[in-house]
Design a protein around this nucleic acid. Structure first.
Lengths: 174, 174
DNA sequence: ATTTCTATTTATAAGAA
DNA sequence: TTTCTTATAAATAGAAA
């Protein structure tokens, strides 16, 4: 390549901020290009992953463009009915707007599970205590054997809990 | 950087043919990545060109993912009606889906709150037990996490204690 | 299922047609 | 509105985590 007199034909791609484009013409061109890119990406996704998808876009001039694999209507029908071939219960997220919401929900569920697990442990301890009737009778009434066994068991449990505590970092109310 | 012994950490991106991926795991990963990319592109398109769009995709596991600007239902509604007006969706199916979803979330939150309350109670019990030396080892030197685990585990004990403990016994210790 | 890392492959902003 | 060119910005395949 003649570096000496080979001027760059273009300034090349420039970084742009993702915000509403001002110039109408530029907006049109960008829409055209990016819509093509979007549909291409969608197509590749469908082929590569063997999945169905549909896209509906309205141009700046309110013209409708759509993509569908196998076809737009089929996909949208599935979505709208939320059933047929696809169960609505498999809904992973209703839209990008719900994503944050969804995350919160998942988070809440996760924490709930952890709490349940903790309570399950407590339940085991309770059963253990019931076995020795500690709460029905007075400690004074326990035989020395029973008492000793009880304490040993409590120690064991406590040790396990301490070990386990290292795995969990719950700061729910700390 | 040491060029001599600085091995490339990855082979880098490879060109791939756009055809159905065979390996299930790879398909899953690719789907996740490309779906994100697709939604991002859609989002950028909507912002840059100030337009509306919606995407519906079913994952390899038949989970539904969707994107919508301003929201999926509105766009699809417009598409179906063949109009450019963006009315709020009146599609019962989806409304129900959302409501059901919302209900589940609220439910989860409510239960989480209850669990939190229980833990708070357990904490009080732990302090109580410690105060009266019910445990041979002091729990003072337990880390907060350990302590919490411990407290959770004796939650059930506390409940039974409150239910069955003799007022007299309690007063003896107090 | 989502995400990290990084070498490469792709997509594209500009400018002009 | 879509296309061409090209320098550069972005997306992402592969391997793990």
């Amino acid at each position: 390549m003649n570096m000496e007199n080979q001027r760059k034909k273009t300034s090349g791609r420039k970084k742009i901020e993702i915000k509403k484009l001002d110039k109408q013409t530029n907006k049109q061109v960008t829409f055209s290009k990016r819509r093509q890119g979007l549909f291409k990406k969608a197509s590749e996704l469908c082929v590569l992953c063997d999945v169905h998808a549909a896209i509906v876009v309205f141009s700046p001039a309110d013209k409708l463009y759509c993509f569908g694999e196998p076809n737009t209507d089929a996909i949208l029908n599935s979505y709208i009915r939320g059933t047929t071939e696809f169960e609505s219960s498999k809904l992973a997220g209703n839209s990008q707007n719900y994503e944050e919401y969804n995350k919160q929900y998942e988070e809440a569920l996760k924490m709930l599970e952890m709490e349940k697990k903790k309570l399950a442990d407590a339940e085991n301890l309770a059963k253990f205590c019931n076995t020795f009737g500690w709460w029905n009778d007075s400690i004074d009434d326990m035989s020395s054997d029973q008492l000793e066994q009880f304490m040993v068991s409590i120690y064991e449990l406590k040790r396990k809990l301490i070990e386990k505590a290292d795995e969990h970092v719950m700061k729910l109310h700390m």
